[in-house]
Nucleic acid binder design. Structure first.
Lengths: 319, 319
DNA sequence: CATCTTATGCTCAAGGAGAGTATAAATGGT
DNA sequence: ACCATTTATACTCTCCTTGAGCATAAGATG
């Protein structure tokens, strides 16, 4: 089947040949800590060349992750395709297209003898964890530095606009924290040169914000993945991919909170779970617990066949 | 800056060289009809090779669309990257990665002397337009054929599962229409071999569903774009990219309805517009109208700077 | 038994969303 | 002039959702 005329009349394939890479954001949640699979001492996301022996990108990613971790991948979703030369540095390297994916697993599913390292994702984004209230680094370090950056704009109008952008994306000045703006926040810090990856790293005076950096644009890809996942859990039952087969409602709640980076109202969370019929009792009770023992639940896989849209809404507080 | 170790130790670039193509879903709304830019007599989306002279994919797309249509592009968003060999047919062609984009413009913005053709998007997806109630072809043709397909499953359990999937994605048996499931519906029809693109086209007996086909996987890409746009208008003020500078609230409503493929409650729509402060009066009134003249409004660009999340919610009916 | 901790059931109030009624302002026909 | 028709615009009403809090139950520990 012929493609479009445009393509037929275009330059030969060798003219714009590129290499295709896969980059994976593999997420697990262990003990209420969201983790991502990393390599190179936690400074890079797992990535590799795309093998065209596979039928599709998804198949390639699954096979590749399985080879790396020794376990099949549950939920997989494409994130974004990057081809920016600007950030990757050297223009003389062969052009590369990076196709990034988000994958959900459990840490314990990784086979023995594999080089998988799991790093807490808040190591890379300390300002994103609002479970214990607004992080200290946000108010004490990031906000002031953003203010300085805003004030450095050429005109008063631009200064105000810059600061307004900062205030919105970081929820400053009582605007309320929006946990989904992960990428926007990273991009803003990048633009303000508060992130090592933004270059100017040789500038020792550069005011750098806390948070572990990553190779190339991997931290940006990670931010994309976190943002996507935080949005997704609200309208698709994907949290369960990160849970063991049986769990208590509190464990489930803790996982949701870990991903969202903020706390939810316990009773309302249970109400949502019940009325949405996402889970069912196993009949067993949790063992080895403090306090009153909780019922064990399992995910009702049937809901996937029953309804098109089901989510784990976040019963947030208005305050 | 070095990339991950995985990449360093991988095969040389020539080993997995591919060509990168851009495919664009360019949307406009004219007189309450959503349209897409097409080439080749409406059988393909505009596409072409990615020129690495540009800094990023977005820049490349913008420049390319501008060259094609003679007008700058407003809103641009990446859709999906395809590399499936399975559907493109010949395995001997050079491997290609197609990066698709969604772009919003207005039909009248296309310059003279360009070969842009605008086709109504419901020509390709007749079953997606529910503005005048459930389309006839859905009840009369699609539903029965899906039922036949479901019954062709090997076991009774599989038959039931198939039919349940169909009923959910197409809103059959009083389940309610979900306008966002555009891609799922297309994929289901594809799987059921009711779509010419699914191959078996030589089979004259094949029960084919109404709707204009497209080259390669372009109709799938279009479905992805429509689905994305239908979801997006609910939480981002992107409709305004498709509107003229000044418009009446009814015109705005008609555009939203055109995209969503379903009607909304007029009074509630106005209430939403007002309380969200997305628009402001220009002071002028619409001319050349039937009935009472309406106030003209314009988009309040300031909201983009004021709030992070603003949407054109659909005040749908519960029935 | 007092206390701590988690589990679980229930109520309340404010806001949002779906739906309907009523009125206003234009046009065109008789 | 009057009326039907069409669109614009203002309000009201009710049900459901959602944020929030109170109260009680059931285990462990000292």
């Amino acid at each position: 089947m012929a493609r479009s005329p445009q393509k037929k009349t275009s330059a030969p394939a060798s003219g714009n040949a590129v290499t295709a890479d896969l980059v994976a954001v593999l997420v697990a949640v262990t003990d209420g800590t969201p983790k991502i699979m990393t390599i190179a001492g936690g400074s890079a996301l797992p990535s590799g060349p795309f093998e065209f022996t596979h039928r599709s990108l998804q198949t390639a990613l699954r096979a590749w992750v399985e080879a790396q971790t020794g376990h099949p991948l549950g939920y997989v979703e494409q994130l974004y395709t990057f081809a920016d030369r600007g950030r990757s540095g050297d223009a003389r390297t062969p052009h590369s297209v990076s196709i990034s994916y988000l994958g959900l697993t459990r840490e314990d599913q990784v086979g023995e003898g594999f080089e998988a390292h799991w790093s807490g994702w808040y190591d890379y984004f300390p300002w994103e964890d609002h479970r214990a209230g607004t992080p200290v680094c946000l108010a004490k370090m990031i906000a002031p530095k953003l203010k300085t950056w805003a004030k450095a704009a050429p005109s008063p109008t631009l200064q105000r606009e810059r600061w307004q952008r900062c205030a919105i994306t970081f929820g400053l000045e009582d605007r309320g924290w929006n946990e989904e703006l992960v990428l926007q926040r990273y991009e803003l810090l990048y633009e303000a040169l508060l992130i090592p990856e933004a270059g100017r790293a040789h500038d020792r005076e550069a005011p750098i914000v806390p948070g572990k950096p990553m190779t190339a644009d991997h931290r940006r890809i990670l931010a994309t993945g976190i943002a996507r996942l935080r949005a997704k859990i609200k309208y698709r039952p994907v949290v369960f991919e990160l849970m063991p087969a049986e769990f208590t409602l509190l464990q489930l709640q803790r996982s949701v909170e870990a991903l969202a980076g903020r706390l939810v109202h316990k009773q309302n969370f249970r109400r949502l779970m019940e009325q949405q019929e996402l889970v069912e009792e196993t009949g067993a009770m949790a063992a080895d617990t403090v306090g009153r023992p909780a019922k064990l639940f399992r995910f009702r896989h049937a809901v996937l066949a029953e309804r098109a849209v089901v989510g784990t809404k976040l019963p947030l507080s208005r305050t």
